[in-house]
Design a protein around this nucleic acid. Structure first.
Lengths: 419, 419
DNA sequence: CACGTTTGTTCACCCATTGACCTTATCGGT
DNA sequence: ACCGATAAGGTCAATGGGTGAACAAACGTG
């Protein structure tokens, strides 16, 4: 009944390794390729440049582009103004008036909604503070539905939402729309998609769930691509979402690796010292007990209500705060080093509150990484602060929806040309 | 001059995500798909069954199969004997008389060579003990070349070697044929492919290098597939190669994840206790210092020359040996738990000497995993001993070569139909 | 203004899959 | 022994979709 979780294919190998390639798979594949090139393009594109980049003939590329324009997935702008000989090409860009993705975010201390267009622009957003520790899922779902309805009703008429994706700080039962365990919300076994489907603002929209760190990492990958980092190495990194809990995601070629059940990247429970302090997860010596935000506050001698701004302010005067950050950074460094030895990427992105504490954490992390990562000698590890702005999980959730369309524009076209 | 390392494409997405799909890509892709189905088939296959499994029409599947038969990649056996109505199908199997892969293995205490046919059978093998700690790469290359020549010259005449792959316990500079660092051989910056190319037995053969844990894991995946584990979950596991050093590989869908440079899976340098004993890598508290074979020997009060058989023998009487194994197993458990939290697979395969010590290690590992892996409640982790036989790295290396052919049979056919 | 250059478009051609139809081979029932 | 039913393998014209050559359009240069 309420099952509308599935439906979106991941943008990996477009011709799935199990299913055979039919002849129409060719066009399916190439359409996706062209659309992806337009969406992820660092600079301006033309039909000819697409053909060159993908190895298609100009005729084929042109044909595919025309189909995407007809489907309002790609927009044709003015002719390129060039200082060289030859006919100027027509500039192409992702269409910002057609399809869009609805991103919803549930966090411990707030809810957020953002509608993202194919060109990456935000078509509408909303935010609502609130304490969701030990909350009632039904109540939270209702609040989120209201917030989403606010945003959706104000969208321009031509916008078509391809679906919604909800970021949850939790382990999810993949595909089912069920939250297996959200420690900080104290939810377990909650059928969140079913709850959200009943909200007036979200009817008739396919809804899926996503892990907050995964989705933030996705937004981060996109942000770095826009900033010019489209190279494969730049699109591979370890993302760390530092909050009260510590989440993580391993991003390879712009796509977070989800693992067998979608539970990978739980860097917060990397062991720093097996005889260390007991963790809420039941184990001992987990990173979270060294570098979680509440632990940093406690070791700094500050109350748990202290904001990050206040923490940064105190840091200038209090040696205790400095010590506490150093202590945390060394632990993060150990966990990062362990992780990099296991997954071999050469870039670490600090997100969440860690992005704001970056200047105080990076040196300690780098020190541990230099001495503990085997490969650091040949491929120096870079530690950087996240680029993605606030509510990055909501942004990433919107992208997640759009990625479903980008990965298979043929299906989107088929579903909308004759409705 | 000596550059013949490259040339083999990895068997992931067959239509590469960057290059566009041309119309001949269709056949390339489908040929690979059919051949892969035949090679990885758990049971007997016929043309019709292939068509059904892959979603091709019987005519297309039949056409593709005929091409593979002509290229001597697939063998047509006798008709299937069936108890049902209808014409019996012709049974298909990977050809064992055509293409083969030459697998070479360099280990601290021995060299090994094995030629593997498409059906997984060994067409020839050799082994030579020897201590290669702090050895001269040129000398080792010469020995290995001799050993390979022995095996190759005795192959049946119809066998065509598609290439050679060398397993090295080392970090490799991917694509270049250079060993960046092999701690236990005391090699660094060695152009091993160049050295091997000069050996008489290996002329005119493309040679590539591979990490020993990666290649053993590949052999393990194949062994499990033959044993009936072709399901995606069964083909995803964490492989641990326990020897003096501890290597590892994260296998997803039968393919070891290599990471950005091919250095992933270094589980031996997972941190157990950051203030633990100093490791050869420069860091402190690495798993190797708790569970490396030499450490187990030392803590057992045995000399470094003690064999595993002797160790197992002593275990029955000496409480000190038992304690030492328990100590090691707890540390392995911590490292495994950390790894599983990061990469989310639900199966751990103990290889190398750990396979032989399995009964003494598994309980301790399982105990730590149960209490430290977040997801263990929903997806119980299974710890099993490796199935792949001795010299599994050489077997895996042979498979690595064959995988290059299986991933793109069209290229193999093109290169051999009109030589 | 003629020429070279590059882009976008058109169209006949070619390649690989498709699906209908046929043949072959076995089993079950009469 | 014969006749359907069932299923596998093969044949061939049709179709879908990329290819490449040719051409027109639009811009710089001399």
């Amino acid at each position: 009944m309420n099952k509308r979780g599935g439906g979106s294919s991941r943008p990996g190998p477009l011709l799935s390794p199990v299913g055979a390639a039919r002849q129409q798979s060719l066009r399916t594949h190439n359409l996706a390729l062209v659309l992806r090139a337009v969406v992820e393009a660092p600079g301006p594109l033309t039909r000819a440049r697409i053909a060159g980049a993908l190895g298609l003939t100009r005729s084929t590329a042109s044909d595919l582009v025309d189909r995407l324009i007809a489907a309002r997935l790609v927009d044709e702008l003015e002719p390129e103004l060039v200082g060289r000989a030859g006919r100027p090409g027509m500039l192409l860009a992702p269409h910002r008036g057609g399809v869009a993705g609805l991103g919803l975010e549930i966090q411990v201390d707030h809810l957020a909604v953002r509608v993202t267009a194919l060109d990456g622009s935000s078509l509408g957003e909303a935010r609502e503070a609130g304490d969701h520790r030990a909350s009632d899922p039904a109540v939270v779902a209702r609040s989120l539905g209201r917030l989403a309805a606010q945003v959706v009703t104000q969208l321009p008429a031509q916008i078509e939402l391809a679906g919604a994706c909800v970021s949850v700080p939790a382990l999810l039962r993949s595909g089912s729309g069920i939250v297996a365990l959200a420690p900080n919300l104290a939810w377990s076994g909650v059928d969140l998609v079913a709850l959200l489907c009943e909200q007036p603002g979200l009817r008739a929209l396919p809804i899926e769930l996503g892990n907050d760190a995964d989705l933030s990492a996705r937004a981060e990958a996109r942000a770095r691509a826009v900033a010019g980092g489209t190279a494969r190495e730049e699109q591979s990194f370890l993302y760390i979402a530092g909050e009260v809990g510590i989440g993580g995601a391993i991003v390879v070629d712009g796509e977070p690796a989800r693992g067998q059940h979608g539970w990978s990247g739980e860097i917060g429970h990397t062991v720093i010292d097996r005889s260390g302090p007991r963790c809420a997860c039941g184990a001992t010596g987990c990173l979270e007990q060294y570098a979680g935000l509440d632990v940093i506050r406690r070791r700094s001698g500050l109350s748990l209500e202290t904001t990050v701004d206040q923490l940064l302010d105190r840091e200038r005067r209090s040696i205790r705060v400095r010590r506490s950050l150093e202590w945390a950074s060394a632990a993060i460094g150990v966990a990062v080093a362990t992780t990099l030895n296991l997954v071999d990427v050469e870039r670490v992105v600090l997100g969440g509150v860690y992005a704001r504490l970056f200047d105080h954490l990076a040196p300690g992390i780098e020190r541990e990484v230099r001495s503990r990562v085997l490969a650091a000698r040949w491929a120096p590890v870079e530690v950087v602060a996240a680029l993605a702005g606030p509510d990055s999980a909501a942004t990433g959730a919107g992208w997640r929806v759009l990625d479903g369309v980008v990965a298979d524009p043929a299906r989107w076209i088929a579903g909308h040309s004759h409705p």
